[in-house]
Simulated assay, not measured.
Amino acid sequence: MNKELLGLIFLPAGVMSMAAAALWQMHVVMAESYTLNRFKDKQLLWVVSAMFFSFTLALYIFCPNARKKGILFWVLAIGGAVMYFLAKLWLPLRK
């Protein structure tokens, strides 16, 4: 297989993988954020502040059930980004 053909495959596959990572992340957020109910009011201020600035990282720190689910998110996100950038590099779509 040459690089152009791989680029044609990787471009949509990378976009779909990153979109699947975003959908998976939304699922994890909706399914696991109920565990934040265990914090008292003062503690919740710090949790919400951390989630505001780095939501994904904070979700995996403060919601223990979400940690295992984070592996799929990172595989899809990083794999999709790598495929997308390799496709952009290999395809002769220069200006």
Rank of each mutant, 00 (worst) to 15 (best):
Q25N: 13
N37C: 07
G7Y: 09
H27Y: 15
A66E: 05
W90P: 01
N2H: 08
P92I: 03
S49Q: 14
L11M: 11
F73K: 06
M30D: 13
M30Y: 07
A22K: 09
I71D: 05
A20Q: 05
K68G: 15
V15F: 12
A58H: 09
P92W: 02
G79L: 02
D41Q: 12
G14N: 08
G70S: 08
A87M: 04
W46T: 07
A81N: 06
A81W: 09
V28H: 02
M16Q: 01
L23E: 08
D41E: 15
L45S: 07
A22D: 10
M1C: 06
M16L: 15
V75T: 11
M1T: 11
N37A: 15
L76A: 07
M30N: 13
I78K: 03
K68N: 15
F55Q: 11
H27L: 08
R38N: 03
F62P: 00
G80I: 05
F73E: 13
E4K: 11
E4F: 04
H27T: 08
K42G: 00
V15G: 02
N2Y: 05
A81L: 12
V29S: 12
A81Q: 06
E4A: 08
A58M: 12
Q25W: 14
K88W: 01
Y60E: 11
F52N: 14
L44P: 03
F73L: 10
S49G: 14
V29Y: 12
P12C: 09
K42M: 04
V82T: 12
K42T: 04
